[in-house]
């Protein structure tokens, strides 16, 4: 049987287009039943300068679905795991809630779910992606900050963006090989 070519899901973000409208955050809450007070995605804001020379930049962020995910490495029960296509997930039934992965994530992308007492995080909306849809945050974004797709597919928008545009990743020094790419 011919081996199916491997997929590698990733996200490309154009933060400059982010208007901090929180659509992605609320869409994620609705789609994934995320409790109040914890977030699978968020928008970081950085303000600088003095009146009237001011600057604000917004950085939408979520799990980076790292190539080398430290959360998966430290998980004592194997509840944190990574799919073939790179998506990092939590098996809720195996999670004992030790919170080690929360601490081990350089991006603070995980949270302790106050209702289920297990650890939660962005799943790239696998249930949507697997049926051919886009993650909720990508679909809902008014300013089209987020582009989602398969890095291994040369025709995919993420592949094309990354091969034509300058970009960076966050906290590369943490060594996790993050897969959220921010356009410069």
């Amino acid at each position: 049987m011919a081996k199916k070519s491997r997929k590698r899901y990733a996200m490309v973000l154009d933060s400059r287009k982010c208007i901090d409208c929180k659509a992605c955050v609320v869409a994620c809450k609705a789609e994934n039943d995320v409790p109040l007070g914890v977030y699978r995605n968020w928008i970081g804001a950085e303000r600088s300068g003095e009146y009237p020379r001011l600057r604000t930049s917004f950085d939408p962020e979520q799990c980076h679905h790292c190539e080398n995910p430290s959360c998966v490495r430290v998980c004592p029960t194997g509840a944190s795991w990574q799919r073939e296509d790179g998506i990092v997930l939590v098996k809720y039934d195996d999670c004992i809630g030790c919170k080690y992965c929360i601490i081990a994530c350089p991006y603070d992308a995980r949270y302790h779910n106050p209702e289920t007492h297990t650890v939660g995080k962005c799943t790239f909306c696998t249930h949507r992606v697997d049926r051919g849809d886009l993650p909720a945050c990508v679909e809902t974004c008014p300013s089209r900050v987020r582009v989602f797709g398969d890095l291994e597919d040369p025709k995919s928008p993420v592949h094309q963006l990354l091969s034509t545009r300058r970009h960076r990743v966050l906290k590369p020094q943490a060594g996790n090989g993050p897969q959220l790419y921010y356009l410069l």
């Binding site: 490495r73 430290v74 998980c75 004592p76 029960t77 194997g78 509840a79 195996d94 999670c95 004992i96 809630g97 030790c98 919170k99 080690y100 302790h112 779910n113 289920t116 007492h117 297990t118 650890v119």
Partner: peptide
């Protein structure tokens, strides 16, 4: 633990990469 009753799962696995 968030799920104290599941502590036994620690011993259902051995993961050499996890200090815990």
């Amino acid at each position: 633990l968030g799920k104290p009753l599941r502590f036994w799962k620690l011993f259902a696995h051995f993961r050499w990469q996890s200090p815990m």
